Simulated scan of single mutants.
Amino acid sequence: MSVNLQKGQKISLEKEAGQSLNHVAMGLGWDAVKSKGFLGFGSKSADIDLDASCVLFDDANRPLDVVWFRQLKSRDGSVFHTGDNRTGAGDGDDEQINVTLGQVPEHVKSIVFTVNSFTGQSFSQVDNAYCRLVNANNGKEVARFNLSVQGSHSAQIMAKLYRHNGEWKMHAIGENGTGRTFDDLMPQIAAHL
């Protein structure tokens, strides 16, 4: 079951999954740039490099760790990135960040997921760009955002996973921004902690 989340909506991941949810993945996908010109000759657009990142925060809203293309695994090992895709080539998710919720240390209170266009294109210039949250136990999509219809923005704060009364919940933030990396979004992220 996929949930069509509205900006600002909060859900219980376990209730949506219908079971105890212990492994989630944030998937990011987009289509590679196709060559333009007559019979393959002519100009070719620049590659499109979108990046999935996540920042782990403590209960005082201080950043503890980050998982992104320059650090593919959290220091505690509970979060890992499948690797940087710089073109969008291939089917399905081009990048994934996997979180084993049961292994996330207690002092981590929230995890914020972001998407950035490292090469600077706005999402409206990228074909079939999306980000989604998946129950990695069974592959079912919990939430999905179509980025290509987001307009002239080059970044998005997608969602926040957070602990509430011993249970993981998700806040669908869906806030557009600008910047090549998660670091450019930190002032905006702070407003959602």
Rank of each mutant, 00 (worst) to 15 (best):
5 L>G: 03
116 N>M: 02
165 N>C: 04
117 S>P: 09
161 L>G: 10
179 G>P: 14
103 Q>V: 10
157 I>T: 06
33 V>E: 12
148 S>G: 04
79 V>K: 14
19 Q>V: 05
69 F>N: 02
77 G>Y: 12
115 V>S: 04
37 G>F: 04
181 T>Q: 06
38 F>R: 03
41 F>Q: 03
78 S>N: 08
5 L>A: 11
184 D>T: 08
69 F>D: 02
57 F>H: 08
166 G>Y: 10
23 H>C: 09
19 Q>K: 15
63 P>N: 02
132 R>S: 03
19 Q>C: 13
34 K>Q: 14
2 S>Q: 08
43 S>N: 07
42 G>K: 05
59 D>A: 08
127 D>V: 02
105 P>L: 01
55 V>L: 13
19 Q>R: 15
152 S>M: 13
85 N>K: 00
97 I>N: 06
131 C>D: 04
177 G>F: 02
126 V>L: 10
83 G>K: 05
118 F>E: 08
89 A>C: 02
138 N>C: 06
2 S>D: 13
82 T>L: 05
189 I>P: 11
128 N>Y: 03
116 N>I: 08
159 A>N: 02
159 A>H: 05
65 D>K: 10
89 A>N: 07
31 D>E: 14
106 E>V: 07
116 N>W: 03
62 R>L: 15
148 S>R: 04
193 L>A: 06
153 H>I: 07
122 S>T: 15
148 S>E: 05
33 V>W: 00
152 S>G: 11
21 L>M: 11
69 F>S: 09
188 Q>D: 11
171 H>F: 12
61 N>C: 13
134 V>N: 00
20 S>E: 14
5 L>S: 03
161 L>V: 11
58 D>C: 04
192 H>K: 09
86 R>G: 06
49 D>W: 01
28 L>C: 08
117 S>C: 14
62 R>A: 14
112 V>W: 13
39 L>T: 10
136 A>Y: 12
46 A>G: 12
141 E>R: 13
31 D>L: 11
41 F>I: 07
4 N>P: 03
126 V>H: 06
113 F>K: 01
51 D>A: 12
59 D>P: 00
150 Q>I: 01
183 D>V: 14
117 S>Y: 03
32 A>Q: 15
128 N>E: 06
45 S>K: 13
35 S>F: 06
2 S>V: 11
174 G>W: 04
190 A>E: 07
181 T>P: 01
45 S>H: 02
104 V>C: 10
28 L>I: 11
166 G>C: 09
